[in-house]
Amino acid sequence: MRERAVNLGRLAFGLLAAVALGVQAYHVCTRHASLVNFFSYFTDLSNMAGAVVLLTGGTLGLLGRRGVPDPVRGAVVLCMTVTGVVYAVLLAGYHLPLELPWVNAVLHKLMPAVHLADWLITPPRRRIAWRRAVLWLAFPLLYLVYSLLRGAAVDWYPYPFLDPRRPHGYGRVAVASAMITVLFVAVGAAVVWTGNRLGRRSARSVGVHT
């Protein structure tokens, strides 16, 4: 019963995220803004991955099949959690052009909490190896490189802390990038440690009741 409720919840929240992204993309198009810019926000990319993970996991779970691999889930939890933290700390007062208020609330506030809750409620069944978790940092680092290279080419940057046209230029960007990298490492370590600890506890609980 509990597992069914979790999977139904995944489907519901995955669908909500997908609808929010779709409505926002349509809104951008109707304002004749750049759809490429829309897909260049870390928030949107992370939420797209998150929606796929939730919808896939919920569907497979209801069909009685094994869901999304836990390392993939962990990578999404990391990206979504950092998305929520960075928004709360750095971007809450920053005007995001064309973003609808309810979409902003769903993507920046609700969905990070949903993915973190899903990880805590259904922790990984197998221990997440630290060497595998290091690979979670690949996407954020590639995103950073992409944002800076594309920004220099088209004169547009998704976030103010990545914009070298602002005071102190690339020096400020380097400091901000280093701080956010530290945040990714710290949150990633917490996700792995918490998931493994809760996973062991869940396995012992199942063993006791079998």
Rank of each mutant, 00 (worst) to 15 (best):
Gly61Phe: 02
Leu55Asn: 03
Val85Ala: 01
Ile180Met: 14
Ser147Ile: 04
Val77Glu: 00
Thr181Trp: 09
Thr194Met: 14
Ala33Arg: 10
Tyr41Asn: 02
Tyr143Glu: 08
Leu162Tyr: 11
Met80Thr: 14
Arg150Gly: 04
Thr56Phe: 08
Pro69Ala: 03
Arg126Ile: 00
Phe161His: 14
Val85Tyr: 02
Leu198Tyr: 09
Val145Asn: 14
Tyr87Asp: 10
Phe13Pro: 04
Thr181Gly: 15
Leu55His: 06
Thr122Lys: 07
Arg73Leu: 09
Leu135Gly: 15
Val76Ile: 14
Thr81His: 09
Val192Met: 06
Ala105His: 14
Ala75Asp: 00
Val114Trp: 03
Trp156Gly: 03
Tyr159Ser: 11
Thr30Cys: 01
Gly14Ile: 05
Pro124Ser: 12
Gly195Leu: 04
Trp156His: 09
Trp193His: 12
Asp70Thr: 10
Ile121Leu: 15
Gly50Thr: 00
Arg201Ser: 06
Asn37Cys: 04
Thr30Glu: 12
His108Ala: 13
Phe184Pro: 10
Ala25Asn: 01
Val208Glu: 06
Met80Ser: 15
Ala174Val: 04
His27Thr: 00
His95Gly: 07
Ala12Pro: 01
His27Trp: 11
Leu120Cys: 15
His32Thr: 00
Ala25Tyr: 05
Thr181Glu: 10
Val28Trp: 15
Trp102Arg: 06
Trp156Ser: 02
Leu90Ser: 14
Pro112His: 05
Leu15His: 01
Ala88Cys: 10
Arg2Ile: 12
Leu90Phe: 14
Arg126Ala: 02
Tyr159Asn: 12
Phe13His: 10
Tyr87Val: 09
Leu62Glu: 01
Ala129Asp: 03
Val68His: 01
Arg31Trp: 05
Val36Thr: 07
Val208Gln: 02
Val182Ala: 15
Ala33Met: 09
Val53His: 06
Thr43Asn: 12
Ser205Gln: 10
Asn7Trp: 08
Leu116Ile: 11
Arg126Asn: 06
Glu3Val: 06
Ala113Phe: 08
Asp163Ala: 14
